[in-house]
């Protein structure tokens, strides 16, 4: 069972208190009459599935109830950082392939 740091509670809490909620930083396009079918299909169905660091949404459903974002490494399961919904992805959580080779984790 992983420990996940809830950025609202400021505590590491056990994984079973949380619920995964899909990819983060997906913007709902709108207004409806200005969105193309392709754009809407991409919003509904197209997601990246990278090996490595992903930004995803979690909800502390059995805790403070808040949604938040997390950067997690899909290889090691390590949570690089968690941050509140609405905040930008912290630069230090960039995918490793964008970092200089000697600093990659």
């Amino acid at each position: 069972m992983l420990l996940i740091r809830c950025p609202w509670c400021g505590m590491d809490r056990p994984e079973i208190e949380f619920r995964h909620a899909g990819a983060a930083h997906i913007t709902r396009p709108g207004p409806p009459d200005r969105v193309s079918d392709e754009e809407w299909a991409a919003f509904l169905y197209l997601r990246d599935n990278p090996k490595g660091r992903v930004a995803e949404r979690w909800r502390h459903v059995h805790g403070c109830g808040r949604f938040f974002n997390a950067v997690r490494d899909t290889v090691t399961d390590v949570f690089v950082v968690t941050y509140r919904a609405g905040e930008p992805r912290p630069p230090e959580s960039a995918p490793p392939e964008t970092l200089p080779p000697e600093t990659r984790p």
Partner: peptide, 13 residues
């Protein structure tokens, strides 16, 4: 309830 919470917190805060 979870879906509403999602929209309230993240879509229309």
């Amino acid at each position: 309830f979870g879906m509403f919470e999602d929209y309230l917190q993240t879509e229309w805060p």
